[in-house]
Write a protein that binds this DNA or RNA. Structure first.
Lengths: 337, 337
DNA sequence: ATGAAAGCGCTAACAG
DNA sequence: CTGTTAGCGCTTTCAT
């Protein structure tokens, strides 16, 4: 049984149904202009012969390709994150409901997605692969970029106002009475991480608080780096009373480190995260955090790309979504106050 | 600038290089039988015209499709796991090096991957989508299944001996002197989770230890469920001295719960996980665990599928990989002993 | 409402 | 080593 029988083509269906292949094509593509009787016969023939249109033939003949590509950076801290997972999941679900195929590619900046296989591509962030995005753009391939905004780049984007988000989070801490506020960064390869650092600094400056270099702890979004940051924080000559951490995952790990050292959260140190990962609801202390509308970002990006694919003339669109402060239990006024 | 200029085809290249389209095709496909001089001219023309072969045309004409599909269950606890991430990442990297396109589909058992778009599909586990796998099989689509083994199903598979793994883990605990050994399960929708439960029971029986129903804590791979399991464990009338947990992630969360209740690990309770997630190296106590060769599983599955795609007559192959006990610091003999 | 026919861009005999 | 030619299976005018 190497080859039970040749796979049926549109021609076989036409013969079986007693119509022309054009009519079969019409019912496959749901043209309204087919007599009910004929439609029925074709549908039956399709079923009977177990016919499935050849995708490559359809794409070749129509010149269109209803598949989109998703390019995700695969750097460790970034890839193994709630952010990446959620983006990926949301994009996949969005594609599903648009009935669009999803081609994935994880990149380290060296390899790139096979653009010939898709009608357009969405970049989940731009990290060392900006040149690739530009190349696609120059070739007229529809592109949408997520979580990366650059007015210099003529491309549609859906991003989050990370600067404002970080500033809001930091200001919240300040409003609660904290003056010694530390910061844990994400991987500064990403624009989002840089902007969050920026937002932290802006808030500190705005309230006349000094920005101490030793209060800026570099992380890379990994739990490991958060643990290291926690250790360094404990060794600080003047211990901060609050920390704003660039991701929930790192925030949770930081809290673990503090707890292990019998430092209570929020009693001794307050913590704010970034993401709104539901996992952080259930810990010893539910985490106050900046919520990112990740699903919305993914859906919007996919829809935007989809529209661009239908209408290549569509103007570009830079959408900026706002993060939102979610107040829970990990912040308290400093104990001295 | 709606259409700068028509995209160049193989014909344009042939004209530009002064050869036939066949010769162009040959150099594109790296046939050795092309005169160096001609190859050079074609390559130049390709570069000059920025020619990129039309994938759909290639696939239609050749009747082959060098893309593979990956279908992943999207159920929450299962999807947001180290297991899923690692599988996904490894499959993506394997595809990259084979220069094969990767089509992704997340399934809830209702929707399925567009098989027409690929040359074969790998299933990352079978959960509520077995019928889909069977259908593809019956249509002659090359399929490989990961982490699911069923002698009844005529399909190549790459799985892990979960029963043995769980048994080994449990026996290790027993050998260390534990008799009151509890178990936290994964989501029993998956075969792996069921087998791990089985392995736990086998080990207990083998050593004449009673299997207490209240020692079998049901989880679903999520941290939330692990937290709940931890809570229940604390309320047990006879507290176990050791726990075997079906995933590292759950094990870490369980440890957190224990710590929060001032129960020390491993001094008061020993814990063994399953996965070997590197994150578990850095906690307050590095986790003893059963390592799963996830990368190997993914690579093997992709390679197996790839071979099957080249040679549809290839016989099926059920590969079973072994997990391995990694001893670290989360297990100690029970304190009473 | 339907069909005939001309491609879509490429591969693969086949002949030379 | 190279070119001619016949498709691959479908969509899309263009008539009717």
């Amino acid at each position: 049984m190497t080859r039970p029988k040749k796979v049926n083509s549109i021609e076989d269906v036409a013969r079986e149904a007693g119509v022309s292949i054009t009519t079969v094509s019409r019912v496959i593509n749901k043209f309204p202009s087919v007599k009910d009787e004929n439609r029925r016969r074709v549908e039956e023939a399709v079923k009977r012969l177990n016919f499935r249109p050849n995708l490559s033939a359809q794409r070749l003949a129509s010149g269109s390709n209803n598949a989109i590509g998703l390019e995700i950076p695969r750097y460790e801290g970034i890839f193994y994150s709630f952010y990446a997972m959620e983006i990926f999941r949301s994009v996949a679900i969005a594609c599903d409901s648009l009935r669009v195929d999803l081609l994935m590619h994880l990149t380290d900046g060296k390899t790139e997605i096979n653009a010939a296989a898709v009608g357009g591509v969405v970049f989940a962030d731009i990290i060392r692969n900006r040149a690739h995005a530009e190349e696609l753009l120059s070739r007229g391939v529809p592109v949408v970029v997520m979580n990366y905004l650059d007015p210099q780049l003529e491309v549609s984007s859906v991003s989050i106002d990370n600067t404002k988000g970080a500033q809001t989070a930091t200001e919240y801490l300040i409003h609660m009475g904290h003056e010694k506020v530390a910061f844990v960064s994400g991987d500064l390869m990403s624009q989002a991480a840089i902007e969050r650092l920026e937002g932290y600094k802006l808030a500190m400056k705005k309230f006349g608080l000094s920005i101490r270099e030793d209060y800026i702890l570099k992380g890379d979004y990994s739990r490991k780096s958060a643990r290291a940051a926690g250790q360094r924080l404990l060794e600080l000559p003047v211990r901060p009373t609050a920390v704003f951490v660039s991701s929930d995952d790192m925030a949770m790990e930081l809290i673990n480190v503090l707890l292990e050292n019998t430092i209570r959260v929020p009693d001794d140190i307050s913590v704010v995260g970034f993401d709104d990962d539901p996992v952080c609801l259930y810990g010893p202390v539910s985490l106050t955090t900046m919520r990112q509308p990740l699903k919305e970002m993914a859906q919007t990006a996919v829809k935007e790309l989809y529209l661009k694919m239908q209408d290549p003339g569509r103007e570009i669109n830079r959408i900026v979504l706002s993060p939102e402060l979610i107040i829970r239990d990990s912040v308290k006024p400093p104990s001295g106050s």
